[in-house]
Write a protein that binds this DNA or RNA. Structure first.
Lengths: 81, 81
DNA sequence: ATCATATATTGTGTAAACACAACAAAAACT
DNA sequence: AGTTTTTGTTGTGTTTACACAATATATGAT
């Protein structure tokens, strides 16, 4: 079963590298890469640490179904451009 | 690092056995036992399946810090007795 | 008392999430 | 241009979350 994630998205938004995120959550930089590509499925522990680092709910970070594009979320959220 | 959970609590509330929960989420019955006792820390995948089964957020099911007793939650929630 | 169900314990095996190292390629910055 | 940073890839090793089986104990129902 495929597991989708928004790690790269949140990393990009905050301008933090894989190496920096890895250090923040206490794993090897490679591990972040594997997670972003979907090659690894994280432990709950690691998922919680990453979610805490980004201050988002786990459900917003990982999902069994592909994530809605941010543009669509912005529209739904009725952001006033 | 210890990981606390409310699996037994939700199981008790809904009157479902470990075996039944195990079948619902597709794991061995022993595995549920190990999780409840804190002997195993679940994969994110299994954690998400159990949370979905109970229809609760993962954060309400698993925590690095001990869970507040239900009595205290009820008080905070201002439930009218 | 008997029988079924639920839980606990112990043991063995396997798959996969990690760590770590080395190197290549691409991107960004001076 | 060069040079640092970031990312991707490949390989090897270890730990642990799982599966599965067997048995013991406790509880509950009849």
């Amino acid at each position: 079963m495929m597991l989708y994630n928004r790690i790269g998205l949140f990393r990009a938004e905050r301008g933090i590298s894989r190496k920096a995120l890895a250090e923040a959550v206490g794993v090897n930089p490679q591990t972040i890469g594997y997670l972003e590509r979907g090659d690894y499925k994280p432990s709950l522990e690691l998922a919680m640490k990453i979610a805490a680092e980004f201050d988002v709910a786990i459900e917003h970070l990982f999902s069994f179904r592909p994530f809605e594009p941010v543009a669509a979320v912005l529209r739904r959220a009725g952001e006033t451009a």
